[in-house]
Amino acid sequence: MSIDLAELRKLSVAERIQLAEDLWDSIALQPAQVPGVSDAQKQELQRRLQAHEQDPSAAVPWEQVHAELMARSGSR
């Protein structure tokens, strides 16, 4: 299959967002074909879980993370 990225870039931002949503929706219809988590990813998740269990107070609330990201990007 060949997709012309130049043609896709001609779409409006709203059209590209809709296309991305449609692609994700089509993937969700075939969950058995979605690649699984690799062993390295599983190990990293386990490491992070153990670190959190050892010091739950080190976690940063989502609201704080979100606010910091928005401040960095100049968005609100």
Rank of each mutant, 00 (worst) to 15 (best):
A14F: 11
R48N: 07
S2M: 07
A59Q: 14
L69F: 15
D55Y: 04
M1G: 13
H52C: 06
A67D: 14
A71D: 15
Q18H: 04
A58T: 05
L69G: 12
L29F: 01
D55L: 09
E68S: 05
S12T: 13
L8A: 07
P61S: 05
D39P: 00
V60T: 15
R9T: 01
R76G: 07
Q30K: 06
L8Y: 01
D55E: 09
R72W: 11
E68N: 12
Q64C: 00
E68C: 03
Q33V: 01
Q54D: 06
Q18M: 08
A14W: 02
M1D: 07
H52Q: 10
G74D: 14
L5F: 08
A6I: 01
E63W: 00
A71Y: 07
S75K: 14
P35L: 06
A28M: 13
L49E: 12
R76I: 10
P56Y: 12
M70P: 05
D39E: 12
R9L: 02
R47G: 01
K42M: 08
Q30R: 10
D55R: 13
D39T: 06
I17V: 13
D55F: 04
S26A: 10
A6R: 09
E21D: 04
L11M: 08
Q18S: 10
G74N: 11
K42N: 09
Q18I: 06
Q46N: 10
K42Y: 01
Q43M: 09
S2P: 00
Q18P: 00
W62T: 12
I17D: 08
A32L: 07
P56H: 11
M70L: 15
V34I: 13
W24Q: 07
E68D: 14
S38T: 15
H66R: 14
L23Y: 05
Q30M: 02
E53T: 05
S26Q: 08
S75L: 15
L69I: 14
G36H: 02
E7G: 01
A59S: 15
D22Y: 05
S38R: 04
L45M: 12
W24I: 04
I3A: 11
S75Y: 13
A20H: 02
D25M: 05
L11W: 08
E21G: 01
E63Q: 13
E68R: 14
L69S: 14
V13P: 07
I27E: 03
L8H: 02
W24M: 08
E53W: 09
H66Q: 09
